[in-house]
Amino acid sequence: MRELDRQVAYWDTVGAAKTFTHPLELTWLAGVGRSARVLDYGCGYGRTMAELSAHGFREVSGVDLSPALIARGRRSRPDLDFAVLEDPPSLPYASSSFDVIVLFAVLTCIPDDDAQRKLVDELVRVLAPGGLLYVSDMIVQDDDRNRDRYAAHVAEFAGPYCVFTTSDGAVCRHHEPAHLRALLRDLDLVRERPIDVVTMNGHPSRAVQLLARKQ
Rank of each mutant, 00 (worst) to 15 (best):
D113F: 14
G46W: 01
S96D: 15
K18I: 11
V14A: 13
E51H: 09
F82V: 08
D79G: 05
Y10T: 08
G31L: 10
K118Q: 14
L85Q: 15
G46F: 00
V63A: 04
D40T: 02
D87W: 06
G46Q: 01
I70S: 01
Q116H: 05
V63N: 00
I70Q: 00
D79L: 09
Y93T: 00
G44Q: 01
G56I: 03
A9D: 14
L107Q: 07
P23Y: 05
R72G: 09
S90Q: 15
A115L: 06
G42V: 09
L29F: 00
P111S: 08
K18L: 14
A71L: 13
L132V: 08
L24G: 01
A68L: 11
L29T: 01
L91M: 05
T108N: 14
S97G: 10
A71D: 15
V100W: 10
R58S: 14
R47E: 10
G15H: 03
D64W: 03
F104H: 13
D64E: 08
A36C: 06
D81K: 10
V120N: 00
L91D: 03
S76H: 15
V124G: 05
K118T: 13
P111E: 07
S61W: 12
A9M: 02
V84Q: 02
R74L: 03
A71Y: 09
F82N: 06
R75I: 03
P111G: 11
S35P: 04
S96C: 15
A115P: 09
G44E: 00
S90A: 12
L119Y: 10
G33F: 02
V102W: 00
A83N: 11
G56Y: 03
Y41V: 11
D121R: 13
D40M: 01
S53G: 12
H22L: 15
L91K: 02
P78D: 04
L127M: 02
S76V: 13
A83F: 09
C43P: 06
H22C: 14
A68I: 04
E122D: 03
D99F: 01
Y45R: 12
E86P: 04
E86K: 12
S61E: 13
R74I: 04
A30M: 07
S66D: 03
I110Q: 05
I110H: 04
P23E: 04
G44S: 00
K118E: 15
E86Q: 15
V102S: 04
P67Y: 09
L132A: 03
V102Q: 07
D12L: 12
S96G: 08
S76K: 15
L132R: 14
T21P: 02
R37Y: 00
L69S: 11
A50D: 12
K118I: 10
G130I: 04
V120M: 02
T27R: 13
F57I: 04
G42D: 07
L91V: 02
G62S: 07
A68W: 03
W28D: 03
Y41F: 14
D114W: 12
V38I: 10
Y41C: 06
P92M: 03
D114H: 13
A94L: 15
G62N: 06
L80H: 11
A54C: 12
